[in-house]
C-alpha cells in the first residue's frame, strides 16, 4: 500500500506532500513519543494528536512513512518546514485517532 492509498481511504487533507508512492507496511497509534521510538515499525502510518516539532524528528528516526495528525489538529509552520526538509508526508484528519486506526486496520495494516 502507498501513502496515496492511505490518503484516499482517510479522506484526509495533505499538510505536507512528500513521496506519495512511498510504501506503507504497518500502522501505529500513540501520542507518547518515547513509546513511538521504542515500538513503532519502519514503514508505519502513524496516527497521533501530538503536533510538537519532535513528531517529525521521531518519524524520521523510526522511518515512519506518513504522519496522520488527528482530531482536526494542525501543525505550526516550523513543524511543516521540518517535515518538508525531512521529506515526510503529514496528513490532517478530522477523525479521532481511534477512527483513523480503524480505517487503517480495515485496509489490512497491522
Amino acid at each position: 500500500m502507498t501513502v496515496q492509498e492511505v490518503i484516499g481511504t482517510l479522506d484526509a487533507e495533505i499538510a505536507v506532500q512528500a513521496d506519495l508512492t512511498k510504501s506503507v507496511t504497518h500502522g501505529y497509534t500513540c501520542d507518547l513519543l518515547s513509546e513511538v521510538i521504542a515500538k513503532a515499525l519502519p514503514g508505519s502510518a502513524w496516527a497521533t494528536i501530538q503536533t510538537h516539532l519532535n513528531v517529525v524528528a521521531v518519524a524520521s528516526m523510526v522511518g515512519i512513512s506518513v504522519i496522520i495528525v488527528c482530531e482536526g489538529r494542525t501543525c505550526e509552520p516550523d513543524v511543516i518546514e521540518r517535515a518538508v526538509k525531512e521529506q515526510i508526508s503529514i496528513l490532517y484528519s478530522r477523525d479521532s485517532a481511534f477512527l483513523v486506526s480503524g480505517k487503517l486496520y480495515a485496509l489490512g495494516l497491522r
Binding site: L32, L33, S34, Q50, H52, L53, N54, A57, V58, M61
Partner: peptide, 10 residues
Amino acid sequence: YQLGMVTPEM
C-alpha cells in the same frame, strides 16, 4: 517520555 528526545534547539 512525552516528546522522545531533547533536540539542541529546545
